[in-house]
Nucleic acid binder design. Structure first.
Lengths: 342, 342
DNA sequence: CGATTTTTGGCAAACGTTTGCTATAAGGCA
DNA sequence: TGCCTTATAGCAAACGTTTGCCAAAAATCG
């Protein structure tokens, strides 16, 4: 920086002000300084700035291992949209994987308490906590994505899962379906609770009882979506009275389930309608094309960043809001009026 | 840190030595210091350390936008395996998207020249370069992944694409196929050159001419894989003399192509065999299940990290090696002896 | 017990910025 | 010219570490 100052013929403090602050310096000298910096190929040292200012420009995204697999593309899309939004405000994105091991937790806490990161976006239900240090008490702005954790004081961005699944169940009822098969994610999981709740609400609204839906799965995590579908196909085969509509909580489940069930001779959608979650592009090319509820992850990413930057902006912690992004049903041929049987 | 020193009853310099360096302090006092640090919930400030030591512990991964889409899961798997490997050595992973815009390039250069990152793993064919600053001259250890850039002096990790596609083409020839349809990625792209080259090599080895293969695509980037497959289906329909085997350079292409082509009444694999690239899990559940050449991205990630850490370790730049990870053909029903026609 | 080695204390400089301060310089206005 | 406003210079402290140095203390050894 001293070199730049010398070349531009100004003081070192002026260079600093020109480069960091916006309006504190005359436009003419700023131009001179910029030119000098460019000529020298000078780039301010981010570590030094961060140290001096007491805050970094790095945001960390906490990803549970379970999100990594499957055709749904949520991870890449989330990362891309979040990174894009962050960059516009001069922030960088750092990845932090959260596993079941204490090491990954400790690692995340080190990042938080060590001043490396300025804020966090978490896609996990659990906040790392070990040895008395907890991410919740790190004094770090945090927003939760995918899961509503506004009760715990974290601003959150979620989709209207419950409503979406309620609507699509109502659609199925309207088509004439009366018996349902529900492919569950991990038991007790936020998404599973919401989605199953939506099914039940729709049933009740139509005067049907919860007995109209058979649950399958619930043991495996979403990352084993394909396996869940396969097991569900076995469960389905064992049923004496077959449901006519399937509601799957991920595209992976739906795809493997459908593939398996078709080999037993069942026709989709004539014998069985299927709808699932996530909006994976590949669903369009299944046979038959699969109806799916799109997760607007890009919008969610943007919203999460907006919330986080707002939280960074204001010192005092506001009350936690929960922003709901509407998901969208992509209707394809896998959903139809039940033709055979019943 | 001063607090920790006081509580442990030692000097501040001893605390520093105990926490940062390994062997410079007695085991007993180190334990005392660790206990004090834990009790106080102390975490060393990474920015300050980085500033003082002159190097950060952050590695940046440069991702081109084109990699983000599709069912192939390369991005998540690469990120996960790289991050996992890095953490074991105390490094963190930062994401840097490389678009076609100058802004993203400038951003990456700022990270490199501003001392934020210690090294980079790039999955892009182009090194950011603007205003005389270039990533190549940032004095940063860099390794290239997916693309062989050892000619340009970058240690690289790639798969044996050419060989893999040569082998599978030879398999197809052995099954009796004589006319081929090749779904290309972007023209001139490293992968496309390698893979197409493999096809031609296999043809020549079997005494067939390059005329035995019809190319389709080449205009769109891999991120539009599904579209490429759809267009290819049109191209295929227009052919008077139909090939009996398809070699697709991504699973996305193969999936949409197969879906489309089946609607014209063609049977797979009886009328047409298909094999593709990437090893997406979803291929197992296509109808028929799709043969695909698995990209061992996790191994590649590990290897890339190993290479990078080695480069960081030794000050002087060694000659650039190119590490080849073997890919694996997952054989499924989409490849068979041509039954009809011919 | 004295000699030697290992460990620690204490000090201070350094890393590259930012920022508050005062003082000087430049420019505009009456 | 004198006064006021605005812009910059120059200085110095601060951010939280690491690290070289030397001296002091402790441990080890013969």
């Amino acid at each position: 920086m001293a070199d730049v100052a010398r070349l531009a013929g100004v003081a070192i403090s002026t260079v600093s002000r020109a480069l960091a602050n916006p309006g504190r310096v005359n436009e003419k000298t700023r131009a001179k300084i910029d030119a000098a910096a460019k000529q020298l190929g000078y780039t301010p040292n981010a570590l030094a700035r961060g140290l001096r200012v007491g805050k970094s420009n790095i945001i960390m995204i906490v990803l549970p291992g379970s999100l990594y697999y499957g055709a749904s593309q949520v991870i890449p899309q989330v990362l891309q949209s979040i990174n894009k939004s962050l960059i516009q405000d001069g922030y960088n994105l750092m990845i932090a994987n959260l596993g079941r091991d204490e090491i990954s937790e400790r690692h995340i806490l080190d990042l938080a308490f060590g001043g490396t990161v300025r804020g966090a976006i978490i896609l996990s239900s659990k906040l790392p906590e070990v040895d008395g240090r907890s991410l919740a008490t790190a004094g770090l702005p945090i927003v939760s994505m995918l899961l509503d954790m506004s009760d715990a004081g974290l601003p959150s961005v979620v989709t209207n899962d419950r409503e979406a699944v309620r609507d699509v169940t109502a659609d199925l009822i309207r088509l004439g379906h009366r018996r349902f098969f529900y492919l569950a994610g991990p038991e007790g999981n936020y998404h599973d609770v919401e989605r199953y709740g939506g099914v039940v609400e729709a049933l009740e609204a139509a005067g049907l009882s919860e007995a109209a839906v058979v649950r399958s799965g619930g043991k495996l995590d979403y990352q084993h979506g394909f396996d869940i579908g396969l097991e569900a196909a076995e469960d389905f085969a064992a049923l004496t009275e077959k449901p006519t509509a399937v509601i799957a909580t991920s595209d992976d489940m739906a795809i493997s389930f459908m593939s398996q069930i078709q080999q037993t001779g069942l026709k989709i959608p004539d014998d069985l309608s299927i709808v699932s979650f996530d909006g994976s592009p590949v669903c369009a090319f299944c046979s038959p094309p699969l109806s799916t509820i799109e997760q607007p992850v890009e919008d969610m990413g943007q919203a999460a960043v907006a919330l986080l930057l707002a939280a960074i902006g204001q010192a005092a912690k506001q009350s936690a809001v929960c922003k709901v992004i509407r998901s969208r049903l992509i209707l394809r041929e896998s959903m139809a009026v039940p033709k055979n049987g019943a």
